[in-house]
């Protein structure tokens, strides 16, 4: 379609199981290029698995996904050059200095040696760690390590960044600094997929959102599409995940409260009469997983 922004991430009916546990159940969504996409979901929703699949670290059992035009299942080598990935829990090489740490990963991405020093200097400047360039990574604070890891994920200038709870465990100041960095990356034109449970920080940073619940994308879209005037992300999230849980318990029955009343909580948070009808319809048709609401 002419004028439509190009898609940076596209996933269709992704399925992934680990033994008996189904981590992803038909997750489908799209992220336009240049967006900062907030991936929201409760514990165990499948956020980490979804990011690992998109980063090419985990092969989907079914469905397909493309990131920056590279198929996650068949083009792993190309994908790794296009994607920067920052896991929630990551290890570091304590005895390396910050600049050595980045240089090492730069050489893993086969960046020419003559360019590495400059790239490392630039990245340390971006994440505000220039004074710490010769400090061993083991001697950095947690916030600094998070920023260093973010710099590591940028070392090969990827098109898409996949950040899994990048601000978890940080104090408010360090969290704010890291989120500022994410905003700056978005302004630089990077597509960022940011998984988090802290909805307030996502609402500040992200331009679009996806709500993942039990392996399915309960809803996704831009902030304007998902949230009407006076609505908030947290309320929508609570409503959608609750409705989806009830639907599963009812095996596809209508999304009603035990009292038989429709889920007014969702309607309150969307806030427009038109959407009121759309949402109610979608919640009741039993097709949880691939709902996408857009304003007319």
């Amino acid at each position: 379609m002419a004028g439509a922004p190009p898609v940076a991430v596209r996933a269709q009916a992704l399925e992934k199981s680990f033994g008996a546990a189904r981590a992803l159940r038909g997750a489908t969504f799209e992220v336009a290029r240049g967006e900062v996409f907030g991936l929201v979901g409760p514990n165990g929703a499948g956020k980490t698995t979804l990011l690992m699949v998109l980063a090419g670290l985990c092969r989907p059992d079914a469905g397909w996904a493309e990131v920056a035009g590279a198929n996650v299942a068949t083009e792993a080598a190309r994908l790794h050059r296009l994607v920067g990935y920052m896991p929630e829990h990551f290890g570091i090489y304590d005895s390396m200095t910050a600049s050595e740490y980045l240089s090492f990963y730069a050489s893993c991405y086969r960046i020419p040696r003559r360019k590495i020093e400059r790239a490392v200097g630039d990245l340390l400047a971006v994440v505000g760690l220039v004074p710490k360039r010769d400090t061993t990574v083991g001697g950095l604070s947690r916030g600094m390590r998070q920023r260093l890891c973010l710099a590591r994920s940028l070392v090969h200038d990827p098109e898409v960044l996949l950040l899994d709870e990048p601000a978890s465990g940080l104090d408010p100041r360090a969290r704010a600094e890291l989120l500022e960095l994410v905003v700056a990356l978005g302004e630089m034109g990077k597509t960022v997929v940011l998984a988090s449970q802290i909805l307030a920080e996502l609402a500040e940073v992200c331009t679009s959102f996806g709500i993942l619940h039990e392996g399915s994308m309960a809803s996704y879209g831009t902030a304007e599409e998902l949230l009407g005037p006076g609505a908030d992300l947290e309320g929508l999230f609570l409503c959608l995940t609750e409705a989806a849980s009830d639907q599963e318990a009812d095996e596809g029955g209508s999304a009603e409260d035990p009292s038989g009343e429709p889920r007014e909580c969702a309607l309150q948070h969307v806030g427009r009469a038109q959407e009121r009808g759309d949402l109610q319809e979608e919640l009741q048709d039993g097709n949880r997983g691939e709902q996408r609401w857009r304003r007319p």
């Binding site: 090419g56 790794h80 896991p87 290890g91």
Partner: peptide, 17 residues
Amino acid sequence: GEREHGTLELLLATPVR
């Protein structure tokens, strides 16, 4: 050791096979 310390995942995310 790389796996235990959580650094293997980062290595595997690079083009190093």
